[in-house]
Write a protein that binds this DNA or RNA. Structure first.
Lengths: 140, 140
DNA sequence: CACAGATAGTTGATGATCTGAAGTAGTTGG
DNA sequence: CCAACTACTTCAGATCATCAACTATCTGTG
C-alpha cells in the first residue's frame, strides 16, 4: 500500500473524528438550549422547519421519520399551542402544520439562544471563518 | 452598528447553519448505519466509549445522561451479549461496563461501515482536507 | 360515472429512551 | 461506630419511534 494512500486514510479518520466530536458537542448544546425553552430535541427540530406551513408527509421526509411518529410530535406541540393543523383546500387529505404566533415567538427565542456568541466559531479569525465556510459549502 | 460587525454576524449565521446541516446529515447516517447493525443511536454511541471498561458514572457523564438512563441502556446491551458488568475490586460500589468480544466485533463492523468512503469528505482534495482538519482542531 | 388502487394521515400496540424520586449497598471521615 | 456521601438500581411517567391496521380522499382506467 502506497504511503500517500495510508496517510490520506489516517488523516481522513482524524477528520471524521473531529467532525463527529463537533457534532456531539453541537447536539448536546442543541438539546440543552431546547430543554431550557421547554422543548425536546425533536420538537425544536420540527418547529425549525415551519417557516412555511408543511404537510405532515413533507415533515416526515425531512425528519427521516415515519408519518405516525410525526403525528405524535405534532400532537404534543399542538397541545402546547405552538403549532396548528390546517386542512389543505386543494387536496383535502393533506394536513398542513403551521407554527402559531406563540410557536414562532418561542422558536425565535430558542434560535437566538442557540446561536449566541459562545459558539466555538467565535474563536475563529475572519479569514479562518471564511475558509471554513467555503469548505463546508462543498460538503453540505 | 459597524458594517464589518453586521457582515461577520451574517457570515457567522451561515457558518452555523452549514455546521448544523452537516451535523444533521451525519446524525442521520450514524442512525441508519447503527440500525443496519441492530443498534440504536444511543447503544452505538455507548459501545463506542468502551475501548476501556468504564464505570456507569463515567458513561453517564460522557453521554450527558443521568445514571438511571445508563442503567437501562446497559441492561439492553447486556441482554444482547454486547457488554458485561464487572464489580470493581477497589470500590465495590462501582460497576465497570466492558464490551464483550461480540460487542467489540459488532462495533468494529459498525465503525467500518460508518467511515466508509462514501462520506462527503472524500470529495475534498488533500489540501482542502488538511485545511479543514486544521480549522476543526481549533474548534473541538 | 364507477370503482379499484393509491395516497395522507391517524390510531393503537409495543419497545426504546429519558428523567426524577426513592431505595439498596458500599465507603469515608469524624 | 455511624452519619453523610457515593454508585448504582428500581419504578413511575413522559416522549420518541416503528409497524400494522384503519379512515378519508383522490386518481386513473374502463
Amino acid at each position: 500500500m502506497p504511503i500517500s494512500k495510508r496517510l490520506r486514510g489516517r488523516q481522513d479518520a482524524e477528520l471524521v473524528g473531529l467532525v463527529f466530536a463537533l457534532t456531539d458537542a453541537l447536539q448536546h448544546r442543541f438539546e440543552t438550549v431546547a430543554a431550557e425553552h421547554g422543548l425536546t430535541r425533536q420538537q425544536a427540530t420540527l418547529l425549525g422547519h415551519l417557516e412555511e406551513p408543511q404537510p405532515m408527509s413533507a415533515l416526515a421526509g425531512t425528519l427521516h421519520r415515519v408519518a405516525s411518529n410525526v403525528t405524535g410530535l405534532v400532537d404534543r406541540l399542538e397541545r402546547q399551542g405552538l403549532v396548528e393543523r390546517r386542512r389543505a383546500s386543494e387536496d383535502r387529505r393533506v394536513i398542513l402544520i403551521a407554527a402559531t404566533d406563540a410557536g414562532r415567538e418561542l422558536y425565535g427565542r430558542f434560535e437566538t439562544a442557540l446561536y449566541r456568541a459562545d459558539l466555538p466559531f467565535a474563536a475563529l479569525s475572519d479569514e479562518e471563518s471564511d475558509a471554513l465556510r467555503a469548505l463546508l459549502r462543498a460538503l453540505v
